[in-house]
Amino acid sequence: MAAADPTRLAENLRLAFELHDAGVALMRQNLRRRLPEASETEIDERLADWLRERPGAELGDAEGRPVPWPRRAP
């Protein structure tokens, strides 16, 4: 297998961070719409809870059965 291009790997990682930040910003907006009377502190707490719990994705975002990580070599 050919070695991965470090520039491309760095770009992919940067993109993953940007997507994470966008998802957090969207959830913050969602919480503000659902809880218009909530303080900024309460929104921050609920956002932190959401990041820890991930309702609907407790075992990750992928389909299939959970497996131990790191996987053992076959």
Rank of each mutant, 00 (worst) to 15 (best):
A3C: 08
A3I: 09
A3P: 01
A3Q: 07
A4Q: 11
A4V: 12
A4L: 12
D5H: 02
D5Q: 02
P6D: 05
T7L: 09
T7C: 08
R8C: 06
R8E: 08
L9A: 08
L9Y: 07
L9K: 08
A10C: 10
A10Y: 10
E11N: 09
E11F: 06
N12G: 14
N12E: 15
L13G: 05
L13K: 08
R14Y: 10
R14N: 11
L15A: 14
L15Q: 14
A16K: 12
A16I: 10
A16D: 10
A16R: 10
A16M: 10
F17E: 12
F17W: 15
E18Y: 07
E18V: 05
L19S: 15
L19H: 13
L19I: 14
H20I: 14
H20G: 14
H20C: 11
D21E: 08
D21H: 07
A22S: 15
G23M: 05
G23E: 06
G23Y: 05
G23A: 09
V24P: 00
A25F: 04
L26I: 13
L26M: 08
L26F: 11
M27N: 03
M27Q: 04
R28K: 12
R28P: 00
Q29P: 02
N30W: 13
L31V: 03
L31H: 00
L31F: 04
L31M: 04
R32V: 11
R34T: 07
R34Y: 07
L35P: 02
L35R: 12
P36L: 03
P36K: 03
P36S: 05
E37Q: 15
E37I: 13
E37A: 15
E37G: 14
A38K: 00
S39T: 13
E40V: 09
T41D: 14
T41G: 09
T41P: 01
T41N: 09
E42T: 14
E42A: 10
D44P: 00
D44Q: 03
E45C: 07
E45Q: 14
R46V: 07
L47Y: 00
L47D: 00
L47P: 00
A48P: 01
W50V: 04
W50R: 02
W50E: 01
L51T: 12
L51I: 14
L51C: 13
R52D: 06
R52A: 09
R52E: 07
E53Q: 11
E53P: 01
E53G: 06
R54K: 14
P55I: 03
G56N: 03
A57D: 09
A57I: 08
E58M: 06
E58T: 06
E58L: 05
E58I: 04
G60Y: 01
G60N: 04
G60I: 01
D61K: 09
D61E: 15
A62M: 08
A62Q: 07
A62L: 07
A62N: 08
A62T: 11
E63M: 08
E63V: 11
G64C: 03
G64D: 02
G64F: 01
G64K: 01
R65W: 10
R65A: 08
R65P: 02
P66H: 02
V67S: 00
P68C: 01
P68H: 02
P68A: 03
W69T: 10
W69S: 09
W69G: 05
W69C: 07
P70R: 00
P70H: 01
P70K: 00
R71E: 04
R71W: 05
R72G: 02
R72E: 01
A73S: 15
A73E: 04
A73I: 04
P74H: 03
P74T: 03
P74I: 01
P74W: 00
